[in-house]
């Protein structure tokens, strides 16, 4: 596989950002999907956009992929303006859209070959790269198959292989693993990690916290078209959550006194219909204090806090669509 993607750019901190966005907005009629956001993506990093459905992630991705124009603000990709240099930008970029839009009338291999042709690659080069990439995504044995009978995970892998045909310096992935089973997700993560190792800049949207923690160097949380927080996964957890979370199942009569019993160790207590969450620097100690006060939970769990806690803290628990 090495040769198909080995030539991709190597991270270089002295380079200008691959993507630079300054107060960009996207409006559809009266609805403002993206309401003025700023961010930079450096060469070679994996940058994530987290947010609930309807947060504006996909609109943002479509602008970055130079398909949808910004309503206002400034966007530069590879230092170029998509409004005037769209084709030149797209030539150096790979796009994995949210829903697979593979060419149903062509075979697996033909899908890759014709995609390479859209980028003006020579026919023989297209065939070589197609074969290498089918190996890379473990679909070599399905080269002559139609697209339709492939499983969801296979289609996703094929879409990723397709996005690599032009050896992109920047790969945009819109919810790359939504709807996949755990095995398929792990294979994809592995592949994405390999690409990053080879120097490809990755930008992805997701609402899976484990995915963001696994893959992203930096990420921002979006809500209602705005960036509400940003940083490294660990940094966000430190900033917006506590070190640990104590999850309790309690009898109704015990619920009210929790914060009082735990005292200063309870940074925040969240009373949910099915359980009580205690955000705390020390879960075991908090639980001990509770027991000492005579409260015996029906069930308890001490866990490290995750990006999910940050996410829910920042975007709330209400369904957004």
């Amino acid at each position: 596989m090495a040769s198909a993607i080995a030539s991709l750019a190597v991270p270089d901190p002295s380079h200008p950002p691959v993507i630079a966005a300054r107060s960009i907005t996207k409006r559809f009629g009266d609805f403002e999907a993206v309401r003025g956001i700023d961010f930079d993506v450096a060469r070679g990093e994996c940058f994530g956009f987290l947010g609930p459905n309807g947060a504006g992630k996909s609109s943002l991705m479509r602008m970055v992929s130079s398909v949808s124009p910004v309503t206002s603000g400034e966007l530069h990709i590879f230092g170029m303006d998509p409004a005037t240099n769209g084709p030149a930008i797209r030539a150096r970029m790979g796009v994995v859209p949210q829903t697979d839009n593979l060419d149903q009338e062509l075979t697996v291999e033909e899908n890759l070959v014709i995609y390479g042709r859209y980028f003006d690659l020579a026919r023989s080069q297209c065939r070589d790269r197609a074969r290498e990439l089918l190996d890379f995504v473990k679909l070599a044995d399905r080269a002559g198959s139609r697209v339709e009978p492939l499983s969801g995970g296979m289609k996703r892998r094929l879409t990723i292989a397709r996005s690599l045909m032009n050896r992109p310096e920047l790969l945009l992935l819109d919810e790359p693993t939504t709807g996949l089973d755990p095995q398929a997700r792990h294979v994809l993560w592995e592949r994405l990690y390999q690409l990053k190792e080879q120097g490809v800049t990755l930008v992805l949207t997701t609402h899976y916290m484990d995915e963001a923690e696994q893959l992203c160097d930096r990420l921002v949380v979006m809500d209602h078209g705005l960036i509400v927080a940003g940083g490294t996964p660990r940094g966000l957890i430190d900033e917006h959550a506590t070190r640990e979370v104590l999850e309790l199942r309690l009898a109704a009569s015990d619920r009210s006194g929790v914060a009082q019993h735990i005292g200063d160790l309870a940074v925040r207590v969240e009373d949910l219909p099915d359980r009580v969450l205690v955000y705390t620097p020390d879960g075991d100690e908090a639980l001990a204090r509770l027991r000492a006060a005579g409260v015996h939970p029906l069930g308890s769990l001490v866990r490290r806090s995750s990006l999910e806690d940050v996410f829910l803290r920042l975007t709330g628990r209400t369904l957004t669509d």
Binding site: G86, R90, N101, Q104, Y118
Partner: peptide, 14 residues
């Protein structure tokens, strides 16, 4: 239905 043009417009074609 096939969303073919959506795919193609992610490439340099206009």
């Amino acid at each position: 239905h096939a969303k073919l043009y959506e795919t193609v417009l992610a490439t340099p074609l206009s």
